[in-house]
Amino acid sequence: MKFVGNTLSIVKKDILLEFRAKEALSIMVFLSLLLIVVFNLAVDIDKDNVSSLAPGILWVVFAFSGVLGMGKTSLSEREDGAYLNVFFSAVSMEVFYIAKVISNLIFLLFMELFTIVSFVVLFNYDALIKGLPALTLPLLLGSIGFSAVGTLFSFLSTGSRFGEIILPFLFLPVVVPVLIAGVSATDLILNNTTGGALLKWLKMLAVFDLLYLTVSLMLFKHIVEE
């Protein structure tokens, strides 16, 4: 019960901080809108090819917008040494990591929902809304993977001088398997293909989530220490 209570306290604090500072979410939402507009202008999308291009565009936006936002949530812990509140408490660093992953996951899912709505409006692609219930699982699994890796690397990078620049370089190569599986699963759902093929990609997302979470849990304490 302590685990749940402590995790909730940290998540609640992160949401309150974000509500006051409006840093992570505003950056994520603004960048996602910007990228969707750029894709809208740069790529020749019509009703014939939108279903094949949408998955790639969406997941690229999720990855780039997400990584910037996650950097901000760890910055609030590092800037005045606030993470030491937890470091010297009865709460383990593993609980702290899990709580930060959940906080980042909430912000990511909010940004993804906003991105999907923006995409539907700008590309006039209603099928995305209809497919949203089926997309929930790949979005959730993909976001867990992003959050697991992003939380770890954001703490690593904010400890260095050029943290916010380094973060995407660390984050993006590692989440390539999540990107591939996420794009493929989304593509199958938007093109009404379900069954074994979809299950294969969902399993891949789940396996990588588990892998990222396990490795990150083992490394997080060492990264938070100097």
């Binding site: 604090k13 901080l17 005045d80 606030a82």
Partner: peptide, 27 residues
Amino acid sequence: YYLGHKNSLYSELTVMENIRFFLSMRN
């Protein structure tokens, strides 16, 4: 309890919110 050169405070939270969070972490 360790107090370094930094104060380990969340600047966006109020004084009371900082204290409550700190105490909740120490149960």
